[in-house]
Simulated scan of single mutants.
Amino acid sequence: MSAAVQDDRAESIRMIRDSAAAVAPPGGDLKRVRELRFQDPGFDPAVFREMGEMGWIGLRVPEAAGGAGLGLGEACALAEELGAALVPEPLIPAMLSAAILAGTPRLAKLLAGEAVLLTAWQERADTLEVPGNADASRRFIPMAAGATALLLPVREGRKLALYEHPAAGLTIERTQDGGNVGSFTPDLAGATKLAEDVGPALEAALEEAALLTGAYLLGGMERAFAMTVDYLKTRSQFGRIIGTFQALQHRAADLKMQLALTRASIESAAAALDEGATGDARRAAVSRAKARAAEASLRVTRECIQLHGGIGYTDQYDVGLYLRKAMVLANQYGSASLHRKRFMAVSPEVEE
């Protein structure tokens, strides 16, 4: 990649980060997030529409199909900024849906943020496989309480057809962070067929959703760590700033290393996919990044709470919200354990 192209790409990523300030205030104010917790639908439909107007839902959709046609470097940068602000709107699930709606009349409304179309692909916990059984219950649909309709992949012979299914009849459960997930048993009698085969598109979209979730987790743990460093620099105990205690400095240094390694993994994976990685190389890059992000986010946010002492364990103090979010997203689109196993199975770096 030439220097000019690299500069253009860096500018594009910077502009995407700047645009996130529209819904993710850089000052870290979580008042809006707190107001939406444990409420239905758990996010603000007006903010979701704003995301559509800014082109975020179609960020990865080709320009010819009405999207922005940008790369995963830009998408991960956006997800990171939203993670730092704990933005609850289901952007990543919507981007997954947009990826499989190419060529259908439903895409335009989703890209505009006028319809919240969520893909009900998961039949069991901790998987990236899509069996597509027509009568199997679909589970773990993120922020399903706000769904306009559901996209239902169904196995028909060797193809994975796509249906639009009404969102009525969902069972909604609260999640640790105050959001929700939905489950339901499909009834194709009330569904509309949208596409004959979305199998390859859905497989690629799930890979990207896993990577974007890792980037979101990275943004959250970096913000939690920054809050913790500020606290260590100001809190006094025994007549000293606690950040001067060597034991706490060592723990903070360990967390800083976790952040650096996670960022390197996310950015390396995004670059590999943007450069056209396919097959096992693509899967290995995504799994390495998601496994590290899932584990590091839980470790970093837990230790940030501990480093705050008693105040960190109160719900009124914001640092705990980042642990709650990590607990929900660490297993979304595959747990660390699943991705480690997959990496071992497909990575050329691992010898027999």
Score class of each variant (00 low, 15 high):
Phe48Pro: 00
Glu89Thr: 03
Gly239Ala: 14
Gln176His: 14
Leu218Lys: 02
Thr175Ile: 06
Thr244Phe: 15
Gly67Ser: 03
Val229Ser: 13
Leu118Val: 03
Arg17Asp: 01
Gly58Pro: 08
Glu208Phe: 03
Leu232Trp: 09
Leu107Met: 15
Ala195Asn: 06
Gly334Asp: 00
Glu81Ile: 00
Ala281Glu: 08
Ala336Val: 00
Ala136Lys: 10
Thr171Ala: 09
Ile305Pro: 04
Glu35Cys: 08
Glu351Gly: 12
Ser347Glu: 02
Arg288Ile: 01
Ala102Ser: 13
Val61Asn: 12
Gly214Glu: 00
Phe140Ser: 10
Leu323Val: 03
Lys31Gln: 14
Gly103Tyr: 07
Gly71Gln: 10
Leu232Ala: 06
Leu217Ile: 00
Gly279Ala: 08
Pro93Lys: 02
Gly71Thr: 10
Pro200Arg: 12
Tyr231Ala: 13
Thr104Trp: 13
Lys325Met: 12
Asp18Gln: 11
Ala147Gly: 07
Asp126Ser: 04
Ala272Leu: 05
Ala24His: 00
Leu152Ala: 10
Ile241Leu: 13
Ala281Thr: 04
Ala24Asp: 00
Val47Ala: 08
Lys290Arg: 06
Glu114Met: 01
Ala247Thr: 02
Ser337Met: 14
Gly320Trp: 05
Val286Gln: 02
Glu267Gln: 08
Leu261Arg: 05
Leu70Gln: 13
Val350Ser: 11
Arg155Asp: 13
Met221Cys: 07
Lys31Phe: 10
Ala293Pro: 00
Val300Ile: 00
Ala205Ser: 01
Leu329His: 09
His250Gln: 07
Val181Ser: 06
Pro153Leu: 06
Pro93Asn: 01
Met143Lys: 08
Phe140Gln: 08
Glu123Asn: 02
Pro348His: 01
Val346Gln: 12
Gly28Met: 14
Leu110Thr: 02
Ile57Pro: 10
Ala260Cys: 07
Asp230Leu: 14
Tyr313Glu: 15
Glu222Cys: 01
Thr171Val: 08
Leu273Asp: 10
Gln249His: 03
Ala22Val: 12
Asp40Thr: 13
Ala330Lys: 02
Ala108Gln: 04
His308Ser: 13
Asp254Thr: 11
Leu111Val: 05
Leu72Asn: 04
Ala252Gly: 04
Ala4Val: 07
Thr301Val: 09
Ala260Asp: 12
Arg32Lys: 15
Glu352Ala: 10
Gly182Lys: 06
Val300Trp: 00
Arg282Asn: 06
Gln306Gly: 14
Ile241Tyr: 11
Leu323Arg: 03
Glu207Gly: 09
Leu188Thr: 03
Ala145Tyr: 08
Gly312Gln: 11
Thr148Ser: 13
Lys31His: 14
Val350Gly: 12
Arg282Ser: 07
Met51Phe: 05
Ile266Gln: 05
Glu222Leu: 03
